[in-house]
Amino acid sequence: MAFLQPYMLWGMLAVAVPVAIHFWYQKRGKTIEWAAMRWLGEQTTLPHRGLRLNEVWLMILRCLLVILLALILSKPVANWFANEGKPKVVHLVQADRFVTETYRFELENALRDGEPVYWLGSSPEKVVNLVDIKRSASSVAYLQQNINVLADGNALDFRLYFLNDGSLKSRVYVPGAYRLFPATDSSKTKQIDLLKNKPVYKGAIRVLLDYQNAAELQTVRAALAALTEVYGFSFEIQQEMSPASRYDWVFADHLWANPQPGTIYVISGNAPQWNAPAQVIQLRDTLRMADSELVESGRLPEWLGDLLVKQLGLQTHTAPSSKSQLNALFKKVTASRVQEQAALRPWLMLVLILLMAAERWLALRKTIRNHG
C-alpha cells in the first residue's frame, strides 16, 4: 500500500490521547472517613479495583478511530495487485514516413517482441505494420494527450518517436520512464517568414474566454492581442457562452463536460484527465505570471501561435531543437493513483462509521450503568 500524503501518518501518535484519558479516569479516589460510613455495609461497596472489560474495549475503539482517521487523511492507495516490477514498454510513433524509416530497426524489433506500438494522432491507434502509415492529424501537438490516454494514470516506459522540426514548444509530462527518439530532417529546415505573409489567415477565429480569475483572463487577452498585432490574426472574443455559437478555441479554468468536435480547448489550473480527448490541451498551472512558465518567460503568444498554425493547416518549418532543448521540454511525473484511492476510500469510511457507532454504543452503556 502506498500513501499520497504519508506525512499525515504522524497523526497516529495521537493514539496516546485516549489511552491517557482512560487511565486518568481509572485512578482510584482518596477515601475520606465520615460519620455515617459505619452504617454502610460491605455489600454496598463497588469493587473498582483493576480495569473493567467494557472500558478497555472502549479505549481500544477510540484508539482505532484515531489510527483510522490518520490513515484516511494520508490518502492510501490500494496497489496490492499492481505490477511493481518493470513498467510496461509502450512505443508512440508520429505517423511520418521519415520518422518511421529513421527508426525502422527499433520499431520492427518492438513489433516482433510483442511490445505495443501506436501511431501518434488525435487518438492513439495501434500499429499493425509500418507500411500503412496513418498520417491524418499526426502532430506533436497531440503528444501529451496521447500519453495521457495510454498511461491512464499508470506508470509506463514510453519510447517516443517524433519529427524534430522545432514545432514542439510546450512541456510534456510523462507518467513513468521515457526515452526520446527524435528524427531530424535536414531538408526541411527552411523557415517561412510569416511576417511577410501578413495576414497569415484572413478568416475570423471565434474564441470563448471562460475564466473566473480576472488576471488569467487579462493574460490570455494580451496574448491574443499580440498574435493579432504580429501575424494579423483576427479574433472574435466572447466571455459568455452562447449555446447557438460555435467556437474555434475555448480557454477555461475548469474541466469541460462535452468537448465539441473541431474546437480546441485550453484548460488550465486543473489536474489532468487521463482519458480526455486529444483536442483538450491540459495545463497543470494557471495562466498567470506567478504560476505559468509560459507566461513568465513571455512564450505564451508564441505557443498559442504554434497551436493556430497546426489547427489551421499553415505549414511552417523551423530549426530543429537541440538535445538539451528537447530534454528540458520533457518531465517525468508520478503516475496518478486517484482511481485506486477512490476505490479504497468508501471502504475506509464505512469502517470509520462502524467504529464510531460501536464507540458511541459502549459509551452510552457506560453512562447508563453509572447512573442506573
Rank of each mutant, 00 (worst) to 15 (best):
V66I: 12
F251W: 04
V309W: 15
R221K: 13
I147L: 07
D291E: 11
L180V: 03
A222L: 14
R345T: 10
L168N: 06
P259H: 05
P272Y: 11
S123M: 05
D253R: 08
W303D: 12
P272K: 08
S297M: 05
G269P: 06
R28L: 15
C63P: 00
L143G: 00
E84F: 11
S242M: 07
S297Q: 13
T184A: 13
E108G: 08
Q218G: 11
N54G: 09
A244Y: 14
Q325V: 06
A278I: 00
L4E: 10
M37D: 07
L326A: 10
L362W: 13
V351L: 13
W249A: 01
R104F: 02
H317R: 06
K196I: 08
V200I: 12
A110Q: 01
L304K: 08
H371A: 14
V19P: 05
V266I: 15
V230I: 12
D152C: 06
L227R: 00
A271E: 15
Y118W: 10
A342C: 01
A137P: 03
H91I: 00
Y7I: 15
Y231R: 05
K310G: 12
Q239R: 14
D253Y: 04
Q260V: 10
L304G: 07
M37C: 03
V99N: 00
R49T: 05
R299Y: 13
Y231H: 04
I72H: 03
A343S: 08
R171Q: 14
P6Y: 01
S139H: 05
L307F: 05
A328K: 12
S322P: 09
I72F: 03
S136W: 14
A271M: 09
P199N: 03
V250N: 04
L217D: 14
V280H: 02
P261M: 05
P76G: 07
R97L: 11
A328N: 06
Y231D: 09
L300F: 06
T334V: 04
T184I: 08
V19A: 13
L308W: 03
L13T: 09
K332W: 00
R49I: 07
T45S: 13
D165V: 06
A276F: 02
V220S: 02
G269Q: 05
W274K: 10
Y173S: 13
R159F: 00
P6G: 00
G50Q: 11
V77F: 13
L68C: 02
T286W: 08
L224F: 04
H91L: 10
N79W: 11
Q144T: 02
L61C: 11
